[in-house]
Nucleic acid binder design. Structure first.
Length: 444
RNA sequence: GUGGCUGUAGCUCAGUUGGUUAGAGCACUGGUUUGUGGUACCAGGGGUCGCGGGUUCAAGUCCCGUUAGCCACCCCA
């Protein structure tokens, strides 16, 4: 019986595993550089957790089943609900701000296609307990630095920055209530991939005859790319009283955010683009998406503020902002730009062994080096020198340790720098001591 | 969930109007004197031609179904 991998799932042969870990390592390294703490959560959760957050429709997109105890459960499609529960349970005792990150696999029962599988890894980064824009800025900085850590620059990706609060103010100025605004936001979210006529039709359910003009006003806003224009536009809205104050305060938050981003060196990546609203209803303030600057413009990461979600999921009232980045589109992008390093699992040393006595010597030295944590390989069976040198070159090892009868007679080992072909003979009892210098500067 | 394209060795592919035992390159294994840079030479393993059915004396080849992959929709936490 031949079994095949389930659709949308991947197997990670060593090379693929090394690529995956390369991505994980960079993510983790950058998160730690910002002093985010790593946490983890269960892969299997009560189905209710997701229905509560996203509604009954979500079930069709989950891997869900009934366990032996009769519980309705689901593989997690995302981490945020679990995280909200973790936070909620300990919110009162956690030192704020809470800065946490996770790297984990998520599962969605969808049709696999380019950049989208049924099992994929996500880098989740969140801050809880800080309502001000400095938290949003911290996350966006982390996001840009994480992408830069792979060698991507401002020609490769941008972060589109938008603000649902600003939209709510603009829509309030249009006379829309909360429900109407929510409808309009979901239409704006689909704007890019919908025909204009279709959009007008959808908008007319809210704006009636005015839909055409309304859409023109929306397009005008979405076209704004610089902050001064945005500020002027917002401050000139026909808002009064409390709403006018909110607009001023909001512009103040924008100023803080942009100043912070600029000071931290992330300014060149930021693109103001109110066309981003994120489909999800739970986002409450700044929202952002990192996307490929050239080509397709696929989303690499997305996030924003979700101040009400923890409470909705049964926790305390605590502000939150976060983003998630997937491994699939990122790996596609890195492949396309030849930024995925090769040869990532290779030994530091590989022994070349002449015969039985030489093998004893090699095994002894290898054992010592391995005990110190050096990566050492040797051939498991006897074969000719020619073959062994070839294998050594192909292994990607930095050094060959050559154990031949001549060297052994002198209680020495010949070390060959496989990078440049230079060789040096080292007394075996000095090998361990000289290894750090060898690894540092090779053989001249 | 809908539609289009594609499935021959681990990979990239060839395979004549349907015709004998399905091939090549790369990769892999072993060897060519047991001492030096990815070489060369020899040999070998590996395929129920995605799967099932049909047409035919005969199917990798034609037809139908199915499944998987890719792409575009839908959706995208």
């Amino acid at each position: 019986m031949q079994f095949e991998t389930l659709p949308g799932f991947r197997e990670f042969y060593p090379e693929a595993c090394a690529r995956r870990n390369h991505i994980f390592n960079r993510w983790r390294h950058v998160a730690r550089a910002f002093n985010f703490l790593e946490y983890d959560a269960p892969v299997l959760e009560p189905l209710e957790l997701y229905i509560e957050k996203s509604g009954q429709e979500i079930v069709g997109q989950l891997f869900n089943f009934e366990d032996r105890g009769g519980r309705a459960v689901a593989l997690r499609p995302e981490l945020t609900p679990s995280l909200a529960r973790l936070i909620g349970a300990k919110a009162n005792s956690l030192k704020r701000p809470v800065k946490w990150f996770n790297i984990g696999e998520n599962y969605r029962y969808e049709r696999p296609q380019k950049g989208r599988l049924r099992a994929f890894y996500q880098f989740n980064v969140d801050i809880f307990g800080e309502p001000g824009p400095s938290a949003d800025a911290e996350l966006i900085c982390l996001l840009t630095q994480a992408l830069q850590a792979f060698g991507l620059g401002s020609n490769d990706f941008k972060v589109r920055l938008s603000d649902r609060d600003l939209w709510l103010l603009m829509l309030a100025a249009e006379g829309l209530d909360e429900a109407g605004s929510a409808t309009v936001l979901s239409i704006i979210d689909k704007l890019e991939r919908t025909e204009r006529a279709k959009t007008v039709e959808r908008l007319s359910s809210v704006m009636g005859e005015d839909a055409e003009d309304f859409l023109s006003r929306i397009e005008e806003v979405i076209a704004i790319r610089d902050f001064e224009t945005l500020r002027a536009y917002i401050l000139n809205l026909p808002l009064e009283g409390d709403l006018a104050d909110q607009a001023k305060a909001r512009i103040g938050n924008w100023e803080k955010l942009l100043r912070h981003l600029k000071a931290a060196g992330a300014g060149e990546f930021i693109q103001i683009d109110l066309g981003i609203v994120r489909g999800l209803a739970y986002y409450t303030g700044f929202v952002f998406e990192a996307f490929e600057a050239s080509g397709e413009g696929r989303a690499l990461a997305g996030g924003g503020r979700y101040d009400a979600l923890v409470q909705k999921l049964g926790g305390p009232d605590i502000p939150a902002v976060g983003f998630a980045m997937g491994d699939v589109t990122l790996a596609d992008l890195l492949d396309g730009k030849s930024l995925m390093p090769a040869y990532m699992q290779r030994p530091e040393f590989i022994a070349i062994i002449g015969g039985a006595d030489e093998r004893d010597a090699a095994l002894g030295d290898a054992a010592q080096l391995r005990a110190l944590g050096y990566q050492v390989e040797y051939p498991l069976k006897d074969s000719g020198f020619g073959k062994q040198f070839k294998a050594a070159n192909q292994s990607g090892a930095r050094f060959a340790l050559i154990y031949g009868s001549e060297e052994l007679e002198r209680s020495a080992v010949k070390v060959r720098d496989l990078g440049n072909g230079n060789e040096a003979e080292i007394p075996r009892d000095q090998l361990i001591r000289q290894v750090p210098a060898l690894l540092e500067s090779g053989i001249e």
